[in-house]
Amino acid sequence: MTICAYATFDGQDSDDELDPVLAAWRAAGVEGRAERWDDPAADWSAYDAVVVRSVWDYVPRRAEFLAWARHVESVSRLLNPAAVIAANTDKTYLRDLPSVPTHWSSEDLPHWPEYVVKPAISAGARDTTRTRDRGEAVALAAALEAAGRTPMVQPYLDMVETEGETSLLYFNRRLSHAVRRNPMLAGGDADASLAEARTPDADQVELAERVLATVPGPLLYARVDLVRLPGGEPAVIELELTEPYLFLRHDPGAPQAFAKALVELL
């Protein structure tokens, strides 16, 4: 039987997708075992593949995490690959995508009605601030630069409060399902349980697949997070290729689709 590691973190009890995924893998003929990514006792060479999942504590230890990914890839199959993870954990990748307008410096900040300021290396809404005060936005960006971090300054888009963010989930580059979710800074509850299934529009699917086509190599999973700009066109707010929540509960066939994709890639 094929044996795969499900790479998680010390707080794996908070990962409500672990059990459904391991059950779907088992049904597909893959024995899955949860392993903490930073467990020094883990023998990664014992696995046919290591699937990066809920490694949600990596951000303050990114260098250590990337070294781990390269090591695992030297002794086993890593999904997603180490090169993909290295590029995807620094949001400067958005410079090359049709994304929300982003200013990457504290200098010459555009005049927008409202700002979102965050570091390029982060997860969720960590170290992220929403403000109407341009001076505060400049100071926040400058503080990130002083700490050796790259700032991202974006306009806050009012329409996300009604439109929300649309997340498209892909397994082995095939669209599995999509959800509408509340944005982290819209003032609502961003809890995953409040997301809802959504049929993506044709222009959203076209953009998501065009973005994925820019990433070479195998992709076991991908989540493309989109918003609509004031003119109505979709734009990328994030491309999640490292440890995205997959919203499996929002589509009854999603765990099986995930397992099928893993078997195909192995």
Results as ranks from 00 to 15, higher is better:
residue 154 Q to D: 06
residue 164 G to M: 08
residue 137 A to S: 07
residue 162 T to R: 12
residue 87 A to E: 15
residue 89 T to M: 09
residue 151 P to A: 14
residue 87 A to M: 09
residue 142 A to W: 03
residue 168 L to Y: 02
residue 90 D to N: 11
residue 122 S to T: 15
residue 146 A to M: 12
residue 91 K to N: 04
residue 99 S to H: 07
residue 108 D to K: 07
residue 166 T to C: 14
residue 107 E to I: 02
residue 114 E to Y: 00
residue 84 V to G: 00
residue 96 D to Q: 09
residue 156 Y to Q: 06
residue 133 D to Q: 11
residue 99 S to I: 07
residue 114 E to S: 12
residue 120 A to M: 05
residue 139 A to D: 15
residue 143 A to L: 11
residue 94 L to T: 02
residue 106 S to P: 08
residue 130 R to F: 13
residue 164 G to V: 06
residue 95 R to N: 10
residue 95 R to C: 13
residue 106 S to G: 14
residue 163 E to Q: 07
residue 143 A to K: 12
residue 115 Y to P: 00
residue 110 P to A: 14
residue 151 P to M: 13
residue 149 R to M: 14
residue 85 I to P: 01
residue 107 E to Q: 13
residue 103 H to D: 06
residue 125 A to Q: 07
residue 129 T to Q: 13
residue 125 A to T: 11
residue 146 A to Q: 15
residue 93 Y to F: 13
residue 156 Y to C: 10
residue 113 P to Y: 10
residue 129 T to W: 15
residue 95 R to E: 14
residue 99 S to P: 01
residue 84 V to F: 04
residue 133 D to I: 11
residue 115 Y to M: 07
residue 157 L to M: 11
residue 94 L to D: 00
residue 96 D to T: 12
residue 149 R to P: 06
residue 154 Q to E: 10
residue 100 V to A: 08
residue 168 L to S: 08
residue 150 T to M: 13
residue 115 Y to F: 13
residue 134 R to P: 02
residue 88 N to C: 13
residue 143 A to D: 15
residue 135 G to P: 01
residue 85 I to F: 00
residue 124 G to F: 07
residue 144 L to K: 11
residue 122 S to C: 08
residue 129 T to P: 01
residue 119 P to E: 08
residue 163 E to C: 05
residue 103 H to N: 10
residue 85 I to M: 13
residue 148 G to E: 09
residue 168 L to D: 12
residue 123 A to D: 11
residue 112 W to C: 04
residue 90 D to E: 11
residue 105 S to K: 02
residue 87 A to K: 03
residue 164 G to H: 08
residue 125 A to H: 06
residue 155 P to G: 07
residue 128 T to D: 06
residue 89 T to D: 04
residue 145 E to H: 06
residue 115 Y to L: 03
residue 133 D to P: 05
